[in-house]
Design a protein around this nucleic acid. Sequence first.
DNA 1: CGGTGTGTTGAATGGTCTCAACACCTGTGG
DNA 2: CCACAGGTGTTGAGACCATTCAACACACCG
Lengths: 256, 256
Amino acid sequence: MAPSSLPEGQPALRPRRLVIAGMEGCTGCAVCEVRARGICSALNDQELEQLARAAVRVTMPPGRVFVEEGAKADAFFNITAGTAKLFKSLPDGRRQITGFVGVGHFLGLAVSDRYAFGAEAIDQVKVCRFSRERLEMVVEEFPRLERRLLSEAANELVAAQEQMLLLGRKTARERVASFLYEQLLDGYGNDIPSGAKLHFPMTRADIADFLGLTVETVSRTLSGLRRDGLLAMGAGHEISVMAPARLQAIAKGEEG
Amino acid sequence: MAPSSLPEGQPALRPRRLVIAGMEGCTGCAVCEVRARGICSALNDQELEQLARAAVRVTMPPGRVFVEEGAKADAFFNITAGTAKLFKSLPDGRRQITGFVGVGHFLGLAVSDRYAFGAEAIDQVKVCRFSRERLEMVVEEFPRLERRLLSEAANELVAAQEQMLLLGRKTARERVASFLYEQLLDGYGNDIPSGAKLHFPMTRADIADFLGLTVETVSRTLSGLRRDGLLAMGAGHEISVMAPARLQAIAKGEEG
DNA sequence: CGGTGTGTTGAATGGTCTCAACACCTGTGG
DNA sequence: CCACAGGTGTTGAGACCATTCAACACACCG
């Protein structure tokens, strides 16, 4: 394949389309912060270099919608910094966030030739962007990549099923507790200390759209958990979890 | 990650063949009725024979739970007849059905060494059962199979996201309409005649657990749709859809 | 400073659930 | 033939949880 002929020069301040921040063709994959995560971890340095030729690094400002629902699915993304939300909408504006995705996450796969979901940057998000064709070529060459993608998909399916249980059968209190506990697991692993701190890049509205609730209900429920001594609110979007075990019990529906 | 477009589109539906009952080792894969569907369609006759050696045909009576939530994930299944429900439960008995799966469906993917979901036969279900190890061996040999699995997983992911939107943001009426319309698409494709008939193997309780509602609400909502001239109830679990277009509009949330 | 976005709290509404009764079907057995 | 039981589905009445509508506090930023 011919070397990519991407425009060189300084990254523009706020281009209409895609920002090319610093790197062309991601030649620095070997030292990339997601080198050991996501799909990249499935390849060795040499193979990765080949993958790199298919990639473009892009930086998104907060609020940028970089995958449009129903748009032509011509690109894939690997998140290298920040957090994004994936969502589906109804014509009247009702919205369901199907997941928050962070560093190392791969996204953009679609069943038809169009995206079935949208994606929007929450904070500043950096991604490696692959065109559909070029990724397909790399995948063709390295079947291990495909295995990795399957593994990612399986993980997401499990998460999706868990979320269906939450949306279909859990109370508001259980939903919020589940969300917080999931965040704890992400940040601390299985050993969660009492007083563990959480910081959220997303707003209450995002949390509400993720949990199938309204902002008011999320706010009220958090207040309720605080009154019950399970949480302590800090500045900004910071929450300390005083009783992780009780939170988990509520999340699993083990509370009267 | 999100759903995938790497794999090619769906194979066209082919005429069904006779089921050969009571086979062991599925030596008759070439004439199996799912030959052209699901993962089997990814292989040629010769390769399929190798797959066959890894499979055992099993028949489940209605109500049989053949995948237990949290049990050791040591097998995969390919459904060759009947319909099964996949579900997740809470300790107090609340249940969410995450999907109904029919002929051609592959299931058993797990992230850890344990199933994150349960599966129960609705009517009489026949499956090809693969041990984990043997399927892995076959997959190792035929990477095309892996691509096929990725494609299936991507499809399920899209369905799961759609279901999250339903569970999190749709009204009871919209949920029931969505369910019915989805069934229409399954049975009739994109061209749905007025008066199209649907037959359900599942009970109202199953539908309720799928839609995140109660049986009473499902029943009431169906009655409401009937009163509005959208449906006509037949004997048994049969429903005729008199106004598919209006049903679709309701399903998409385009009704005041 | 005012304006906007975000978060909290209160009061009232309403959609769905809970509890309850009843209709229907099927198979069983007198 | 009928009586009966159990499973399934429908319908009604009231309760409740989350929503809607509203007001206000607060931070940030021009």
